[in-house]
Every structure is written in structure tokens, then in C-alpha cells.
Design a protein around this nucleic acid. Structure first.
Length: 456
RNA sequence: GUGGGUGUAGCUCAGUUGGUUAGAGUACUAGUUUGUGGCACUAGGGGUCGUGGGUUCGAAACCCAUCACCCACCCCA
């Protein structure tokens, strides 16, 4: 009679030893670079109050929040005579006060407001923690995944935007992954909606611009009309739809289209300045203006970033932008911030697909000692201790089993050396070591072994 | 939220128009080989064919339901 195998919730994953080594490789590189630019670490709880989370990510985002059932009798506050409880949403807000964090930016804004008196501004922090989204999982889309965020808050300077681009450039270059860093500005999109005569249709216009390469000019126009944009409005937008070419050409055309929009021109000024800063510093990866980039998170107000992998088909692997007003919702106005978030799990998928993990990162234990019995084991243990004191990862096979078994253990764990300690070795105070890859075997002293393994 | 696909051994999967005792590779165990692994050979264990119902003399296969997972759209990391 067999028991059904246990499972884990949809969209979550286990990570084995090999995966963990690789994931840590990514985390370590990102963390090192964050530190180098002057960011300090913080962590926040996995749960926030729902009131902190709701309304920050747009309607879609609200739906994707994992809610946490109140402890105790969660239904004690529910009035079952009230007809509105038939609405599942209304009910869930009565029985849930907490939710799992959806990203790291909103909890960070909450953190800044709550701890404002303890912080030095501009405050630069990094944060590497999992987030949860109740999305339907698919390739590259998980319900639990890690974000690696760095943010500066309390500074309007475009130097901060530059820093985000530099950090992204450096991270992906270090990870040997070719990407395109796409940049846009919300003010510019707002200006575009304004000059078209439909300031509230920002999203519709952006979606249309995005589709131009897929469905062509005529279909985009049709769709814009369906979305309620007038013919005159479309005529104004049309030059934007026809944009081809480099950053300068894009800026020139946008300059003309947005001439009468104050906010649009401001957005252009910012973009232009950011690109001139980027040019001064130089970047290794591809960086371009993408006018179709909108980003759903509705707290962005200025620059927006998104990074796409060039050699692997997957959603964006990194994204961010400037938010002018996120902390004012929590009672602290005039705190502009900008940040960027690396999607570690997708970066992992990209790197795995392109074979970008160094093979060296897989190794752990350097040497395995044989176990030939109680007497031999007791002789070996002090030797092990010396090796470990020298920083060498070493193991002894814990019980006396056939050599075949012990060798197989070493093979499977990719341990490069196998040490044999038996009567012969004890008598002569030596260690017989065998290099498993070459089958070469020699009898050496402990000191020689330490030197050998330290070099590797 | 909308649409598509797949569930057979620990894992990856075959399985003919419905037919006898459900297969392969791999992994596992033992042996050839009790102080020398990988290779080879031999033998062995392991399956209510996702679950429930139906059609049939007969179902892993056909029908219905249900659950789970995967993929695409949407959105994003």
C-alpha cells in the first residue's frame, strides 16, 4: 500500500544543492554590485497589512495579492445577513487583514515612512527577498520568486537614474548575459495623451504604440478608434507610430509632437539628460528608448526601465523606475525615489538556457576519506579536523561499507579526491590519495595533502 | 480572467483499429570483484495506467465528470 507522494503548491519550487549554488552565484554578484554603489541592506516581513498593499499596483495587481486569513475565528466580523458578502472580494477583506508582499518597493516606501527619523537621506538601500503573486504560473512565471531591489529615496537627481542603468549594465555584463536595457518616461507618455486630446487614455495609446510592429499602422489606427481616440488625436500621434531609428531621431520627433505639452517636454528633458549622462559614463550593454514601455505598476511618475534578455525568450528580467509620490500615501510627502528590481529566478532561467553558469561553482567537498572500520575511522578523524582547520572541505564516509559504495558517493558528489586510510597508511603515517578523474594514486604525508588541496 | 495540451515504474517516455501476464531507457539492489569507483555482463525488486463513473464478453486505450500539472493570451520579475 503506497502513500500518495507529497506535493508543493502550484507555482512554487524546491531548490536542490546544485540549483542553490547557482542561485547564490547570481545573488552574490548582484549583492556585491549593490554594495559597491553604496546601497545598504534591509529586510521587511513577508506579510504586510493589506491596507499597505492595496491600490498600489493597479486593479490587476490587487487581484494578484495573496491574502492571509485572520487568525482565530476569521469569520467573527462577518455579518451573514449582509448581502454584500456574496461578493468574494468584499468577503475576503472582512476575513483578511494581511497579505503576502507583492514586490519590494511598496514595503520599502512603508519602511521609509515608518523609520524616517532614523534614516539619512538620500537613503540608498538594497533588499533581496521573495515576493508572491497569485498569478497563473507558466514558463518563467512563478507564484513565489526572488526580487533583488536597489532604490534611492529622497533625491530628484537624474544621477540616480544613471546609477540604475549602470548597475543593470554591470550586473548583466558580470553574469555574461546579453540584454537590452529599455528606457522610457511616464511624463512623456502623459504628454502624448495630453496633446492627443485624451489625457485619460494614456494606457490605450501606449498599448497601441506597442502593437505597431506586430499588426501594422492601419490596424493600430483601427484599434485606437475602438478605444475611443478621435481621428484628430490619431493624426497627432501618428508621427510617433512611424518612428524608426536611433535615440537622437526619436527625441527629435518627440520634441516636435510634444512641443505644446509642458509635462511631455519635461519628460523629454529628463530622458535627454539621462542619455547624455549614460554617454559620458559609457555602458557595455545595449541601451535604447522604448516609447511603448509603460509598466503596469501605477506608482511610476518619471523614468521607467525594463530589461529584456537578447538570447532567450522570456518576459522582462529586470524593471524599475521613478516614483515621486509613493511615500505620501503613507503620510510622508515630497520623497521622490527611483529603483530597479532584478528578477533572480528568470535570470537563472536565462543563464541556464544559455549555459552561462561557471562549471567550477558546482564543486563542494574536496576530498572524501574512506571508512575501513572503527579503528581506521578513529585514526582519520583528527586528520579531518586538521584539513578543515585549513579551510579545506573534507568528509569521511560515515560507515564501513564496500569501497564501491564509497567511491560512488564521491563520484556523485563530484569530489575530486578519495583518500584511503588502512593499516598500511597508519603504520607509515601517510595517506593514500587517488585523483578520481585520472585514477592516479600516490602515498603522501598530511602536510603535502594540505598544500595540494589548498592550491586547488 | 480567456483558450489549448498532458497525466502509464523513483525519473524520461513507448504502448498498433479496444484483446491474453503493461514495456523500454535510466536510476535502484545483488553478483562477477571483501584495499580501489566509472565500463561490461548476469539476476532482481518496483505500476489499482491521476481519480470516479459509463460503454463493452473484454478498457491504459472509447465516452462523461473531476482533480492535478504544463503551455499560450493578459500582466509582469
Amino acid at each position: 500500500m503506497k502513500q500518495a507522494k507529497p506535493t508543493i503548491p502550484k507555482g512554487t519550487r524546491d531548490f536542490g544543492p546544485v540549483e542553490m549554488v547557482r542561485r547564490n552565484y547570481i545573488f552574490d554578484i548582484i549583492r556585491t554590485i549593490f554594495k559597491k554603489y553604496g546601497y545598504d541592506p534591509i529586510e521587511t516581513p513577508s506579510m504586510e497589512n493589506l491596507s499597505t498593499l492595496l491600490g498600489k499596483y493597479g486593479d490587476e495587481g490587487d487581484k494578484l495579492l495573496f491574502k492571509v486569513l485572520n487568525s482565530g475565528n476569521a469569520f467573527s466580523k462577518v455579518d451573514f445577513n449582509d448581502e454584500t458578502i456574496e461578493n468574494p472580494n468584499a468577503l475576503s477583506f472582512k476575513i483578511c487583514e494581511k497579505g503576502l508582499r507583492y514586490d519590494l518597493t511598496v514595503p520599502f516606501a512603508r519602511f521609509v515612512v515608518q523609520h524616517q527619523s532614523e534614516l539619512t537621506f538620500p537613503f540608498k538601500r538594497y533588499q533581496i527577498q521573495p515576493v508572491w503573486r497569485a498569478d497563473r504560473p507558466q514558463k518563467g512565471r512563478y507564484r513565489e520568486f526572488y526580487q533583488c531591489d536597489c532604490d534611492v529615496i529622497g533625491s530628484h537627481s537624474l544621477v540616480n537614474e544613471l546609477e540604475m542603468v549602470q548597475i543593470a549594465d554591470e550586473v548583466f555584463t558580470k553574469l555574461d548575459t546579453r540584454v537590452c536595457i529599455k528606457i522610457n518616461n511616464r511624463k512623456l507618455l502623459a504628454g502624448l495623451a495630453e496633446v492627443s486630446g485624451f489625457p485619460d487614455k494614456l494606457v490605450d495609446i501606449t498599448v497601441a504604440i506597442d502593437k505597431i510592429d506586430k499588426i501594422g499602422l492601419e490596424d493600430v489606427k483601427t484599434e485606437l478608434i475602438e478605444r475611443g481616440i478621435s481621428k484628430e488625436g490619431i493624426d497627432i500621434i501618428e508621427p510617433v507610430l512611424l518612428i524608426k531609428g536611433n535615440t537622437d531621431e526619436k527625441l527629435t520627433i518627440m520634441r516636435k509632437v510634444l512641443a505644446n505639452s509642458e509635462i511631455g517636454s519635461k519628460g523629454l528633458d529628463e530622458l535627454e539628460e539621462l542619455f547624455s549622462l549614460i554617454t559620458i559614463c559609457g555602458v557595455k550593454q545595449k541601451v535604447e528608448i522604448d516609447l511603448s514601455l509603460a509598466r503596469g505598476l501605477n506608482y511610476y511618475t518619471g523614468a521607467i526601465f525594463e530589461v529584456k534578455a537578447l538570447d532567450f525568450e522570456i518576459g522582462s528580467i529586470c524593471g524599475g523606475g521613478r516614483y515621486d509620490d509613493l511615500t505620501s500615501i503613507f503620510g510622508l510627502p515630497d520623497m521622490s525615489g527611483v529603483g530597479i528590481s532584478f528578477g533572480a529566478d528568470r535570470i537563472y532561467d536565462v543563464m541556464l538556457g544559455n549555459n552561462k553558469f561557471p562549471t567550477k561553482t558546482i564543486s563542494g567537498t574536496k576530498i572524501l576519506f574512506s571508512n575501513m572500520g572503527d579503528k581506521e575511522m578513529k585514526y582519520t578523524l583528527p586528520l579531518l579536523k586538521v584539513l578543515r582547520q585549513n579551510g579545506i572541505a573534507a568528509e569521511i564516509y560515515p560507515s564501513k561499507v564496500k569501497f564501491k559504495k564509497q567511491f560512488e558517493y564521491a563520484n556523485k558528489k563530484n569530489i575530486p579526491y578519495f583518500a584511503i586510510i588502512g593499516d598500511t597508511e597508519i603504520q607509515s603515517s601517510t595517506i593514500t590519495i587517488k585523483e578520481l578523474a585520472s585514477s592516479e594514486q600516490s602515498e603522501i604525508k598530511l602536510e603535502e595533502l594540505i598544500t595540494l588541496l589548498k592550491d586547488n
